[in-house]
Each structure stands twice: as C-alpha cells, then as structure tokens.
C-alpha cells in the first residue's frame, strides 16, 4: 500500500497494481486464517473486504480507497446472500481472461445475478451510495468517482478549487484529457 501524491485528503489510497498483487496474498491469508479456530469474525470480514477490493480494482480502472471499499463491502455482505461466491466467480472470470482492465472481461460476466452485482459495485463507487433512493446508504461523498471524472474543471460542491472571483477561464472542450485518478 502506498501513499499517493495526488490524494487530496492525504488518505491512504491503494494503487491499482498494488491492489491486484496484494489480493492474492490477502486471499491466501484469509484462507489460512479461516482454518484457525481462534480467528475472529472481524478478521474473516477483513479478508472478504480485501477480496472485495480486488474485485473492485478489476471492475474499475482507477485507484480506490480501501476505507470506502470496506463500507461498500459491509453493505454488500448484508444485501447479497451469495456475496463471497460472486466475488470469487467474477474474479475467476477476470483471471481466466488475464484481464488488465474492466473492458478485457466485463462482457464475459454472464447476464443475471453476477452481471447485476458487478454493475452495483460500479454504481456504488461512482455514486458513493447504495442506490438512488432517499434511504440509500452513503459510502462516501467527496470520493465518489463521478466527481473524479470532472475534477480538472469542477469543484465537488461545498468544497473549493478556486479562490475569490478566480473562476473565469476558457471553456474546456470535450477533447480535453480525462483527469487521472
């Protein structure tokens, strides 16, 4: 895990490469821990969360915050009975395709429960919420990926990226490069 220089909040952000590499290690650790009768439920949950981060990094081609991921995973555990099985299944598809980006394997995820779950994970990271509804669980506001796609020009409302009267600038064309995040 490395501290990223472009993390505005100074929080730990796991790089995509680091996440993919560490996923296997964490999975092995989790499996070993599950054989130990004294292991706590929290440790098992940590393993599932790590597995969830591995899946997330396969579904999303960006750096992801594990703290946010832990919150999403906690909700997913409650809302998807086959949470662990779906994690394994989608990761297995990606590994079989030796996927480096989501585009490499997403089309291979079968329609139905697995595809819906994959979309929900993407939804959660981009919107920062569990659903569109009023009673949605909120995983993050300022780290919702929707704001990252426009961070070169728009503030996240209530935060500031400008100074007094300093927002006059040329209009940015759509051809401008996507921010790196």
């Amino acid at each position: 895990m490395t501290r990223q220089s472009n993390d505005p909040n100074g929080k730990l952000v796991m790089s995509r490469r680091g996440m993919l590499l560490s996923g296997a290690t964490l999975l092995a650790g989790t499996l070993a821990a599950s054989l130990c009768p004294t292991i706590s439920l929290a440790a098992v949950d940590t393993g599932a969360q790590s597995r969830f981060m591995q899946l997330s990094s396969l579904l999303i081609n960006h750096q992801l915050n594990p703290d946010v991921g832990a919150r999403i995973a906690e909700t997913a555990t409650g809302e998807y009975k086959n949470f662990a099985g779906m994690l394994d299944a989608i990761i297995a598809i990606a590994e079989q395709k030796q996927a480096k980006t989501v585009e490499d394997f997403f089309g291979d995820i079968p329609e139905g429960e697995l595809r819906d779950f994959a979309h929900w994970v993407i939804f959660a990271w981009y919107s920062g919420c569990s659903s569109e509804k009023r009673n949605a669980k909120v995983f993050t506001y300022e780290e919702a990926l929707t704001f990252k796609t426009t961070s070169d020009i728009l503030t996240i409302p209530s935060y500031g990226i400008s100074g007094p009267n300093l927002w006059t600038r040329p209009n940015l064309p759509l051809s401008a490069p996507m921010p790196t995040f």
Binding site: L59, H119, I122, F123, Y126, S127, T146, T149, L172
Partner: peptide, 23 residues
C-alpha cells in the same frame, strides 16, 4: 450520474459519458 450508470457502460466509456453529460 445515475442516468450515465443506467446505460450499462463500464471503464473508459463510463468515465467519458459522465464527463460528457456533466459538461
């Protein structure tokens, strides 16, 4: 954001669609 997500896009296509619709 929700409208872009409902299009079922992923990866680069999703990023570009959110950015386009925002702009």
């Amino acid at each position: 954001t929700f409208a872009a997500l409902k299009k079922g896009l992923v990866g680069k296509a999703l990023d570009e669609e959110i950015r386009r619709m925002t702009a």
